[in-house]
Each structure stands twice: as C-alpha cells, then as structure tokens.
C-alpha cells in the first residue's frame, strides 16, 4: 500500500468527522454564579440555579494555595491557581442537588441546587 492511500484514508476520515467536530458553542444564555474559596471553604457553599439552562461558575480562589474544583455529578474539574479566578462551564442540568468539592482538600465541600 502506498503513502497516497494512507493519506487518502486520513483525509476521508477527517472529512467524515469534520461536520461533527466543527461546532462552535451556540450563544446560549448561561446562568452566571460567583463564588469564592478562602481559608479552605467555599463561600457560599450552597448555590442555586434554574434547571435546563447552562451555568457558568466564576470561582475566585483567595487562598495562597491552588485548589481543584471538582464535581463528579456535574462532570467538571478545574484547577484554580492561588489568588486567581477560574471559569467553569456547566451543562444544563435536571433539577437536583449536585455536590462539589476541592480535590486538593476534601474538607471543602458545597452543593449546587438546581430547581
């Protein structure tokens, strides 16, 4: 088999996948929620958002240590460096209570209540 064939297969595969892959985010209205992390605690540690709408969390880490915001049920994890802000995109969710925590310090916990 020649390199040409290999290249052709690659090209076809790329073409086949491109309509799936190239899809920039629609300008959906996201609920924006601000929270802070300081002295190893989330503030506030209970957030509220409405169901079926995307959510953007803006997390300010005021501590001198990095933290990792993580939530299994929301399918997000994000390292936020010391004294900086992290943006976390959350998909539209069904009503429910979604727990989150700092992966570097599991004593820091909180929840997002979606209604």
């Amino acid at each position: 088999m020649t390199m040409k064939t290999v290249a052709a297969v690659c090209a076809i595969a790329t073409l086949a996948l491109s309509p799936l892959a190239v899809s920039l985010a629609q300008a959906q209205e996201a609920t924006e929620i601000q929270l802070t992390y300081s002295k190893g605690q989330f503030q506030p540690n209970e957030l509220r958002a409405s169901a079926d709408k995307p959510i953007t969390l803006r997390l300010k880490n005021l501590d001198a240590k990095a933290m990792e915001f993580e939530s299994k049920s929301l399918r997000v994890e994000k390292v936020v460096a010391a004294n900086s802000e992290g943006v976390i995109n959350v998909r539209a969710q069904k009503p429910g209570r979604y727990e989150f925590y700092d992966d570097f310090n599991e004593k820091a916990r909180g929840a997002l209540v979606v209604q």
């Binding site: 799936l20 892959a21 899809s23 920039l24 985010a25 629609q26 995307p54 399918r75 997000v76 994000k78 976390i88 995109n89 998909r91």
Partner: peptide, 12 residues
C-alpha cells in the same frame, strides 16, 4: 466539551 467548544452530541 468543558470549554464549550464542542457542543454537538454532548448528551451523556
């Protein structure tokens, strides 16, 4: 998907 760059077929 987390960066919202890929939203197609993002259903679990």
């Amino acid at each position: 998907e987390r960066a919202n760059l890929l939203t197609r077929l993002d259903t679990v």
